[in-house]
Structures are given as structure tokens and as C-alpha cells.
Design a protein around this nucleic acid. Structure first.
Length: 656
RNA sequence: GCCGGUGUAGCUCAACAGGCAGAGCAAUCGCCUUGUAAGCGAUAGGUUAGGGGUUCAAAUCCCCUCACCGGCUCCA
């Protein structure tokens, strides 16, 4: 009897001998449901892949990041199959897994309707139930072209092979090596049900998809360029269990409850009147007082950190923005000019040119540097109509903008101190989970200036970033045209990341404006300019905090900090006296003297997310006391007025 | 800017298949005088986003504009 050839492989760190022809799934004794793929030498592969001599094989759990990606990618295939069965004329784009789900793009004559999605979802369920097998089949280019002759986008991808990148998702279809097609085969007859050009890997069968749901459809440009035709994209989500799907959907509902646009209306903070135009907010008194608190604290901290306060107008003649380089580079996102007395005036989209004029207003000495000019400067940008989004993407907004002019030698220390200042200030507002991103020069010719300057500035930003005990992520090509930047990314209470502060080094504007200072040796030198905005925009930061806190601002920021609730009308005057004590301490307090019942007043204050409710009835009056009801619903009854005032004042002063 | 969806009272939403625009909450006025999340009653509130068209008749069907929502592209 002839010996079956044997192979040595490593399985979970242990050497094993297996028969030639053994698949990864067999070697792992995978059940195909919880272990749905294998890492072979670190690369994800199908369970059906045969192992080779010396391979290192490990399981991929469906409930892991890689596992979910494979699941979602397979779900995308199932969706595409369902779509093509229902809409035979649909041409395939790409269908990658994404965070929390997947999508697939289709070229169809008519966009999908919600009813279409229901039909597709139903057909997907049938395919899942059927348990079609995902079978990998290597193919050479010319065969692939023949097989996919009816799929023009796939043909284009074949042409791109090797040149594909993760940027547009095309790498999902055509990987590095040779092309492969995945056939979906009927579980019993082996009949070909559907196929797609794909590098894989996939689930063993469609039956292994435990839970999925189609979410929405939308148009998307082919390969991410607006020069290309628009395809119809269907988004879906898929999870390792029904519970995981359910908790994801619950999380989406929770996030929707935090939507700042919804909370802004409910808490009467701000609105976007139609009459004003798209992307422009008005802040109501309650929102205004939160802004005032935010800005006031920021001003105070900036004063301590050696900033000087300036103010500049909202419009300027054309030449200023020509000098700064904004008109040449960003004309399309500035509002069109206003013609006046033979000159063209533009609404400002940036504050820096104006600050440069202040620097230039007289001769500057090295003794003045670093010169830190700060302004809450309102700017207007013509955001494209489809991108305007509540307070986070508006057409008029106010930056907490500063420009620091310093010498080359001062730059490292300044950047270092600046980053620490920024992070500490953000922490004071209640954000404490950060990472940093360093955006550097890319290949595009939009970047101006000498490579050496860029290298130096980038290096100094990196050094400053590395001193913080935070993750640093590189963002090649993400810089502004005039210089590299660090951005602070903050995670909010439900783990979403927001880009907050940016710190940018700029050699260009000092040059363009001819900025100079006189050095100790009498020579004239060019300062370095550092742009920085901490909140980015006040409106946006407001929105981030509103969502972070779900409207329940800490007491120091809350629009109404204390609501007095009388048990009956007789106690109104008593509570007003308590309120006066609090007002004398600068506390924002209201006494609800309306004719609602006490329970209703509590409900109202609770819905307005007021941090402290102070109740008073006969029991309290007799003891010179008040009763606390906190936002949490907890109570503390019969507290002496002095103690109650002290407690509230302390909570506000410490920004608890 | 592109694709799709939506727009009814301050808010949330009804109004069959084209046939008298309605409810709850909020507001106003009254009654009730209250111990930790909605007391009771009455009143008022609308050019159905705006404009044009079809029709005997339009919130409803068609066109344009505006705004919003979800994506794409963009975001100094």
C-alpha cells in the first residue's frame, strides 16, 4: 500500500503532521459556523483551502473582527446575487465589508425603492436558507474577461489589477496575485447559482450568515470619483448572532436620541430657520447661555496661557484673500463677492489674513514673540448644498481661532506647550479619550513650499505629538496646502470619534504677507506661524458636547442649573428667596411658579435635564431647608439652605 | 454639486383610492393647592414649505424653487 504523502504544519502553535490534500478547515476541525475561516501564515483563507508544507494554521472566529469582515463580505455577495436575480439587468460594482456592515454598488436604470430593498432582503433570506456553497476558482485574466463580458465594471477592475488600492475598495475584488472567482453552488445539485470576481475569503456556505439586515440605499460614484457615473449602493449590516444585530440596532437608536439637531430643538437651544438659508443657525437664550459659559471658560484659560485678544471684521476686499492664497485655492468654497464702490468684498472664510495684518501693523521685535493672537472669529464658507449638517457642518460658524507667531527656535517648545494646553482644555470640557493624527504632505501639486520646510515642520509636530502619552496615527497627504498639521481626535461617550482641535504649521503666509520681526542682532527675520483652533468651531464643539452628554450638560454648562419646585403656591416666595441666594453666587436658577402640579414640574425639569431640582414644602420651610432631586432621580431631603447653596456652588465651580 | 427620500398647528403625528384639514403635547384662560416624571375643563392655533399646472374638486396627481433627512463627492 502506497503511503499517503504527508505534510508538517503548525496548528495553534503546535506542529502536526497531516495528509496531503487536507484543508485548513479539516486541520482545524472547524465547525464552519463559529470558526468560519482560517489564518494561513497570518492571511485569512477559506476553510476549503488546502494547506501546504510548513503552513501555520489558526482559526478565524466569526465573532472576531476578521470573522465579521468575512461574514459581511459574504453577505454582500448574497445581496448582489439577490439583486441580480430580481433585477437581471443590474451590473455589479464593488461590494466590500465596512465598519458595522457592508455595501454593494449596482448600475441599474432605476434607483432602488424601499420596497425593492424589502424584496431583496427576502430573496437573501431564501439564499441563506438554501445554504449555497462559496467555491473559490482561480482564473486567468483572459478567461475572466470572457466570463465577465457582461460586467463592464468588473472588466475595468481586471484592467486595474495590481494598480488597485484600498482607497476605492477595489482591492476586495482583485487582490495582489492571480484573479479568482467565487461560485455560489447549490448544496445538493452543485449547480452554479451565481458567481462574482472576488479575492475572498468567504464563509463556507450562505447558511452560516446568522443575522443581517438591509439598511438603506444611496447613490455613490463609481470608484469614488465624481467624474465617474453614479451607481446605486445598498448598505446592509450583518452580525454573528441575532443578539449582536439587535444590540447594533439598539445602539443606532441610542445614537439617534443623542442627535444634536433633535436635542437642540427639544431643549430650545438653537434652530435653523428656513428664512435664514441653509447651514445657518440661531442660538436661542438657553443655547446662548451654554455658549457663553463655554466661551467664557475658554477665554479665561487663554488669558492665563498668554494669549492676546483681537477682533476683526467679517468682510474684506479681494486683495487680502489673494495675498493669503485663499482665493486662488479655495474660491469655490467662499461666498461670491459683494461689489461696492468699484471693489469686490468677500466674506471671510478664515481669520488668519486679518491676524497677519495685525502682526504687520507695526514693526515687531523678537521680544514680543511668541505673539499669540486669539479671536472668536465668525467665518462663512460656501459648503456644498448636500453636505450641510446641523451645527457640525454649517455655512456660518465661529472659530476659536488663534495664530501664534514665533521664531524657528521657539517652535518646538511652543508646539509642545500648545498641545498640552489643548488637551487639558478639552479634558476640562469633559472629553478625555483622545488620539492624535499627523497629516503630512502628499504628492498632489496643491501643496506649496519647500520640501525641507515641510520636513522640518512635520518633524517638530511629530516630536510634540510623541511627548503626549497618546496614540499617533499618520495621515499621509492629509495636510493643508500650506503646511502639516496635528489634529486631536476625541472619542465621545458612545465611542464615536470627532476631529476636534487642529494645530498647523505655516511657512507660507508669513512669506506671502512679508511678515518680519527684528532679531536681537538687528537682522530682520521671518516668523513661523502656527494656526490653531481648539473647538474647531464653537457650533460644532457645542454639537459634540451636546451629543456626548446627551443633552445632560454638567452643571457648569447647563443652561438652567437649578429649578425650584414649590409643593404648593405657598412655597413660591420661600423658594424665590433661596433662588436669590443662588443668583448672588452666579447660579442660573428658575423657580417654577406655574399652576402645574408639583409632579408635572418635576417631569418638565427632568425633561429639560436640569441638574438640580430644589423642592420646598411645609416640612422644608419649617426647618429652613430644601429637598434635592438630582437629575439621576435621587433625592436628598431636608437639606439646610446654606448647605444646599454650598453644594450647588461647589458643583458649578469645580465643573463637576 | 450628484442620487434618493421627506415637508400638514410651536412639537410628534393622523386625514382610505383626489371629496368639509384632525388628535395628543406645548400655549392662553379658568378650576384644583398638591411631597419627587403628565390633575381637570375651556379657548386659541393652518394660504397643508413657496410658486405654477391638471381637475367640477388637490394636503393628496404633475412641474419648478426652497428647506430638511440618508448617502456619494468635498471639508483650508
Amino acid at each position: 500500500m502506497s503511503a499517503v504523502p504527508e505534510l508538517r504544519i503548525t496548528l495553534a502553535g503546535v506542529e502536526r503532521v497531516v495528509a496531503a490534500g487536507t484543508t485548513a478547515g479539516e486541520a482545524l476541525e472547524a465547525d464552519g459556523r463559529t470558526v468560519i475561516a482560517a489564518y494561513v501564515n497570518g492571511e485569512p483563507r477559506d476553510l476549503a483551502a488546502e494547506v501546504a508544507e510548513g503552513d501555520d494554521v489558526a482559526p478565524v472566529q466569526i465573532a472576531s473582527e476578521t470573522g465579521r469582515s468575512i461574514l459581511r463580505h459574504s453577505a454582500a455577495h448574497i445581496m448582489a446575487q439577490a439583486v441580480q436575480e430580481l433585477f437581471p439587468e443590474a451590473k455589479l460594482g464593488i461590494g466590500p465589508p465596512i465598519e458595522n456592515g457592508f455595501y454593494y454598488d449596482f448600475d441599474v436604470a432605476e434607483p432602488f425603492t424601499p420596497e425593492d430593498l424589502k424584496r431583496v432582503e427576502k430573496r437573501m433570506q431564501e439564499i441563506v436558507k438554501q445554504g449555497q456553497r462559496f467555491a473559490r476558482r482561480p482564473i486567468d485574466d483572459s478567461e475572466a474577461r470572457a466570463e465577465l463580458a457582461a460586467e463592464p465594471y468588473k472588466l475595468e477592475l481586471i484592467g486595474l489589477k495590481g494598480g488597485s488600492s484600498d482607497d476605492d475598495g477595489s482591492s476586495v475584488e482583485v487582490g495582489e496575485g492571480g484573479l479568482t472567482i467565487y461560485d455560489n453552488l447549490h448544496p445538493r445539485t452543485g449547480e452554479l447559482c451565481w458567481k462574482d470576481l472576488c479575492r475572498g475569503p468567504h464563509l463556507p456556505t450562505t447558511k452560516v450568515v446568522p443575522a443581517f439586515k438591509l439598511m438603506r440605499s444611496a447613490a455613490a460614484y463609481w470608484r469614488g470619483s465624481e467624474k465617474n457615473p453614479q451607481l446605486q449602493r445598498i448598505y446592509g449590516t450583518a452580525w454573528e448572532s441575532k443578539d449582536a444585530l439587535k444590540s447594533y440596532l439598539t445602539m443606532l437608536e441610542e445614537a439617534a436620541k443623542r442627535d444634536h439637531r433633535k436635542l437642540g430643538a427639544e431643549l430650545d437651544l438653537f434652530s435653523f430657520p428656513d428664512e435664514l438659508g441653509s447651514g445657518m443657525a440661531v442660538f436661542h437664550p438657553k443655547g446662548g447661555v451654554v455658549r457663553k459659559a463655554m466661551e467664557g471658560y475658554s477665554r479665561h484659560r487663554h488669558e492665563e496661557a498668554g494669549y492676546e485678544f483681537v477682533n476683526t471684521p467679517h468682510i474684506s476686499k479681494r486683495a487680502l484673500f489673494e495675498t493669503s492664497g485663499h482665493l486662488p485655492n479655495y474660491a469655490e468654497s467662499m461666498f461670491p463677492p459683494i461689489e461696492l464702490e468699484g471693489a469686490e468684498y468677500f466674506l471671510k472664510a478664515m481669520n488668519c489674513p486679518m491676524h497677519n495684518l495685525i502682526f504687520k501693523g507695526r514693526g515687531r521685535s523678537y521680544r514680543e514673540l511668541p505673539l499669540r493672537l486669539f479671536e472668536f472669529g465668525t467665518v462663512y464658507r460656501y459648503e456644498k448644498s448636500g453636505v450641510v449638517h446641523g451645527l457640525t457642518r454649517a455655512r456660518g460658524f465661529t472659530q476659536d481661532d488663534a495664530h501664534i507667531y514665533c521664531t524657528d527656535e521657539q517652535m518646538p517648545d511652543e508646539l509642545d506647550a500648545l498641545l498640552t494646553f489643548v488637551l487639558n482644555l478639552l479634558r476640562d470640557y469633559g472629553l478625555d479619550d483622545f488620539y492624535l493624527e499627523l497629516s503630512t504632505r502628499g504628492d498632489s501639486d496643491k501643496f506649496i513650499g519647500e520640501p525641507e520646510e515641510w520636513a522640518e515642520a512635520t518633524d517638530r509636530l511629530r516630536q510634540a505629538a510623541e511627548k503626549q502619552d497618546l496614540d499617533l496615527v499618520m495621515d499621509p497627504g492629509g495636510a493643508a496646502y500650506y503646511g502639516p498639521k496635528i489634529s486631536v481626535q476625541a472619542k465621545d461617550a458612545i465611542g464615536r470619534t470627532w476631529q476636534m482641535s487642529t494645530i498647523q504649521v505655516d511657512f507660507q503666509q508669513p512669506k506671502r504677507f512679508g511678515l518680519e520681526y527684528q532679531a536681537a542682532d538687528g537682522s530682520r527675520q521671518r516668523p513661523v506661524m502656527i494656526h490653531r483652533a481648539l473647538f474647531g468651531s464653537i457650533e460644532r464643539f457645542f454639537a459634540v458636547l451636546l451629543e456626548h452628554y446627551e443633552g445632560a450638560f454638567p452643571a457648569w454648562l447647563a443652561p438652567v442649573q437649578v429649578t425650584g419646585i414649590p409643593i404648593s403656591d405657598d412655597h413660591v416666595a420661600y423658594l424665590e428667596r433661596v433662588a436669590d441666594r443662588l443668583r448672588a453666587e452666579g447660579i442660573r436658577v428658575e423657580v417654577d411658579s406655574g399652576d402645574d402640579r408639583m409632579q408635572k414640574k418635576i417631569r418638565n425639569a427632568q425633561k429639560q435635564k436640569v441638574p438640580f431640582m430644589l423642592l420646598a414644602g411645609d416640612d422644608d420651610v419649617s426647618k429652613d431647608a430644601v429637598s434635592f432631586r438630582y437629575r439621576s432621580g435621587e433625592q436628598n431631603n431636608g437639606v439646610a439652605i446654606d448647605d444646599a447653596v454650598a453644594e450647588i456652588v461647589a458643583a458649578v465651580r469645580t465643573r463637576a
